[in-house]
Design a protein around this nucleic acid. Structure first.
Length: 602
RNA sequence: GGUCCGGUAGUUCAGUUGGUUAGAACGCUAGCCUGUCACGCUAGAGGUCAGGGGUUCGAGUCCCCUCCGGAUCGCCA
């Protein structure tokens, strides 16, 4: 039978005790992390969320107490009263935060016994993720995961403080909302009252936060849970959190970026002790694509893309020729001093890697000190080779990697991914460094050949750049329209999209035009967005906002490589929870109430 | 939806051309041990080789299917 606390109050947390607490009588509580029984001397490491503390039981204590301590097993929950004693000489554990002290125990209460756990709860133990997720509450006892969630709390708190100080109000918006077309797949919730109709869980609080501006709240924020029924990734969960904000009287993207930048700087300073004295760099979308092949460029290293189309336009090499003839390009990256370092086999693996991004092949040239070997130089004239090498500033020892395709998207995607792949392989950047920049001037619209219509690059409420309105209203040319810029911006940290936002359309006519561009009929607009469009008729301040991915911020700051490591109860790749078993079948009665005639499989 | 990788004691893994009773380490249990801190020493328990089918005299090993997990592309306005 377990002991009771019976009024015993904790005086200290385990990890907080130091030599200055010598001789104090303390009460600590926690889990038994490890017991070391030396016969007539026994140690137990007690663990709480602040760290480990050694309990000592020796000949000076009561025999019954000693026997009780001997019965303690790993993960028993204990309450302990005792005296802080200094350790001396080689008994000091320099590898332990509380290694200079221990507790000589005078009272031990076993508050809860524990069965042997399915895996050892230690950072050192290597355990498969499946098992750890099934017993998530045990895995969460480990310091790394605890510290990640403690950091998450800190980041949220700094964000809240900053936003409150800047006049933002925290306002909640509904989880049960209306499904809207475009964007990610919705999670649906059937209505019991109105059979056959459904709520949708929000992909983001976008419409609501704009309506809050129309309602006159001026500045809003929320740490908002968002839901998207799409496939998972190492940095993507079906439900995730955003630090979401919106502000009125913002007309240009700078207006929002300035406020958001202050928040990010506060977070880095409070959570990492890193200060940025200069404003974050800004890069236009077009430059990001041209130089880095990405709308979230990782600029911690070089390996920039170079357009060598002009150098080879008359080469007669069919691969290059076909790409150029069909409106594509030939682009290259130059890997310095790697002609000999990178083997032929590795180059083949690069080619394999970019195949995933649609590239059909990888041309290469290794400018070894003595001689050049290349997959494509034989098709080129000496002048063409010279012009390529001079364009890339290539020197002896460098390795040139080339992708040609009739679709520029394929060239950018594959080389953009390849440069990151190669940089990681060659250790070209410091993992601990933070490289932050704003990417601006995103295009407003993107044409989809298959559907034969435009899609919003950001979302349908994003404001076009006023300087491009003329094109938007008057041009019919797909290419020209694709170049219309939006007041949209992303914050990119170490090549990852940490957040993004835009200035919104607040003029009903312009919004109408935007819906038209997206091929939406008046009926669709009225049915899906009627309530939203109506609101703009009654006075809408110019406004804009942005949202940061909280989970990704926590990953970047803690160095976690998987989003699961910064979420208390995450889901696995098929969007199920290994611990609870969700999603699961429900009773027929429940289905009937909802008017759902779904039969169980099998 | 596509491609690729994996599943053997509680855990992490090894397991030879397909061949006797499937091994190791850690963990667990018991005993000994007064300064350990990944304590040490001794002994012991512990297996539906993911599940199903097939080939074979014989399958952890080869083949097929299913299930489970991971990476990635598509997808994520």
């Amino acid at each position: 039978m377990a002991d009771l606390l019976n009024g015993l109050k904790r005086t200290d947390m385990c990890g907080m005790l130091t030599a200055r607490d010598e001789n104090r009588e303390v009460v600590v509580m926690g889990f038994a992390a490890k017991a070391r029984d030396l016969g007539n001397l026994l140690f137990i490491d007690l663990r709480d969320r602040t760290g480990l503390l050694q309990l000592a039981f020796d000949g000076s204590i009561d025999a019954a107490l000693f026997e009780k301590a001997r019965a303690v097993r790993t993960e028993f929950v204990l309450a302990v009263k005792g005296t802080v004693r200094l350790r001396t000489g080689k008994n000091i554990n320099v590898g332990m935060a509380t290694g200079e002290v221990e507790i000589l125990v005078s009272d031990l209460r076993i508050l809860s016994e524990a069965e042997v756990t399915p895996f050892v709860i230690s950072e050192k133990a290597v355990v498969g993720e499946t098992l750890r997720l099934k017993y998530r509450y045990l895995d969460l006892r480990k310091p790394t995961l605890q510290n990640n969630l403690i950091m998450r709390d800190k980041i949220s708190r700094v964000a809240r403080e900053y936003l409150a100080d800047n006049g933002f109000l925290e306002i909640e918006t509904p989880f049960l909302g209306k499904s809207t077309p475009e964007g990610a797949r919705d999670y649906l919730v059937p209505s019991r009252i109105k059979h056959g109709s459904f709520y949708a869980l929000p992909q983001s609080p976008q419409l609501y936060k704009q309506l809050l501006m129309i309602a006159g709240f001026d500045r809003y924020y929320q740490i908002a849970r968002c839901f998207r029924d799409e496939d998972l990734r190492a940095n993507r969960q079906p439900e995730f959190s955003q630090i979401d904000l919106e502000m009125s009287y913002a007309e240009r993207d700078e207006d929002v970026m300035e406020v958001a930048e202050g928040m990010i700087k506060n977070i880095f300073s409070a959570c990492k002790g890193i200060t940025f004295d200069k404003p974050f760099r800004r890069m236009k979308y077009a430059e990001g694509m041209e130089r880095f092949g990405s709308d979230k460029p990782d600029t911690r290293f070089g390996l920039e893309l170079n357009d060598i189309s002009d150098c080879v336009k008359n080469s007669g090499f069919s691969v290059f020729e076909n790409a150029l003839k069909n409106g594509g390009s030939v682009r290259a990256i130059c890997v310095r001093n790697s002609a000999e370092k990178i083997t032929r086999k590795e180059i083949d693996s690069f080619a394999e890697f970019i195949r995933d991004y649609g590239a059909k092949g990888l041309a290469w040239a290794a400018l070894k000190p003595e001689s050049t070997t290349s997959s494509f130089y034989k098709f080129l004239t000496e002048d063409e080779i010279k012009s390529i090498e001079s364009k890339l500033s290539a020197e002896r020892g460098d390795l040139i990697l080339v992708v040609a395709d009739s679709k520029n998207k394929v060239v950018f995607d594959s080389l953009g991914a390849l440069r990151c792949f190669v940089a990681k392989k060659l250790n070209l950047y410091d993992e601990k460094e933070y490289d932050i920049l704003w990417l601006t001037d995103f295009p407003l619209l993107e044409y989809n050949d298959e559907d034969g219509r435009f899609y919003a690059v950001h979302h349908p409420f994003t404001s076009p750049n006023v300087d491009d309105l003329d094109i938007l209203y008057n041009s019919k040319d797909i290419n020209e329209l694709s170049k219309v810029r939006a007041y949209a911006y992303d914050l990119v940290i170490n090549g990852q999209e940490a957040g993004g936002g835009s200035i919104r359309i607040h003029n009903p006519e312009l919004q109408q035009k935007m819906f038209e561009m997206l091929g939406m009929s008046d009926e669709t607009i009225a049915e899906r967005f009627g309530f939203f469009v109506d609101a703009f008729k009654y006075g809408a301040p110019p406004h804009g906002g942005l949202a940061f991915g909280l989970d990704r911020l926590v990953m970047l700051i803690t160095g976690a490589e998987n989003i699961k490591d910064v979420i208390a109860f995450p889901k696995v790749q098929n969007a199920s929870c290994l611990m609870s078993g969700a999603p699961d079948f429900v009773d027929d009665i429940q289905l009937k109430e909802l008017g759902l005639d779904v039969k169980k499989e099998g």
